[in-house]
Design a protein around this nucleic acid. Sequence first.
DNA 1: TCCAAGTTTATAATGGTTACAAGATTATAA
DNA 2: TTATAATCTTGTAACCATTATAAACTTGGA
Lengths: 140, 140
Amino acid sequence: MDRYVELLRKKGLKVTPQRLEILRYLDKNRIHPNIERIYSDLKKGHPSLSKTTVYNVIDDLSRADLLQILTIDRFEILCDFKAEPHHHFLCKECHKVYDLDGDFSCHLLEKIRSEGFQVDEVHGYFKGTCRSCSKGKKEE
Amino acid sequence: MDRYVELLRKKGLKVTPQRLEILRYLDKNRIHPNIERIYSDLKKGHPSLSKTTVYNVIDDLSRADLLQILTIDRFEILCDFKAEPHHHFLCKECHKVYDLDGDFSCHLLEKIRSEGFQVDEVHGYFKGTCRSCSKGKKEE
DNA sequence: TCCAAGTTTATAATGGTTACAAGATTATAA
DNA sequence: TTATAATCTTGTAACCATTATAAACTTGGA
Ligand SMILES: [Mn+2]
Ligand SMILES: [Mn+2]
Ligand SMILES: [Zn+2]
Ligand SMILES: [Zn+2]
């Protein structure tokens, strides 16, 4: 059975072509797209797709914990297929969002847990200039 | 000379009553208010204040690095007087945003710096249930 | 004191997101 | 299968937070 069908079934969500396409798209395109990007990319192969549906599906999937919504960028909502926990780097020059593998267990996290905070999510957002952009600057 | 006057001067911003009031408000009220909250709180003592001005001033101050804008909550922009670097915990029950003192230096940060990322900002956003809300739940 | 540059304000425009309702699809059970 | 209820998709309209505009005002420096 299709991997994505299974994911939806497990979460008790009805299996629809729209949900499958969006899930597959996010899994295959780990580029942290915004709503507009998802919509315009998928519209090509599915012209009847409505933007309302993209909003609805993203909402359903994030509630079902099948994707996470990044808030690293003040100006737009970015979507990320929910794989292993990881963190993000936003380059202020090229606006690319990089995935950062590797856990950041830190003192701070242990400390607040010991103080009674029940931590469910840890979002690490780093911002600055990525390697290729700093190179470009030096050469100027 | 007034501390806030000095802050503005140093950044080359003209000193206006609106900028001073907003700066002072944010310094004295470390509650991570949103635009609406800042506006309605300050409107009381300054009825001619316009919401456009709040937007403009917040924009100026954040560009001048006198405040930071938190993106921990997908649904609103929260403002934070720029004091020592610190991180944040959002309680999903009571929606309070807690300041977390203490640095989180972690392997991940060192690693990406060594890989050539130039990191200017580190935002640690933790989400879950705060102590008083977990207590409340147990007692139910 | 005077002036240019920058700021505040009310108002209007914008545009991303949400509400709605009709029609289509899905899951389930007969 | 077929029937049925629940749920989903879609286009349209409404909403509302944010931004644009332009006139009046304020600031800082000459
Ligand atoms: Mn990611
Ligand atoms: Mn804070
Ligand atoms: Zn870059
Ligand atoms: Zn709480």
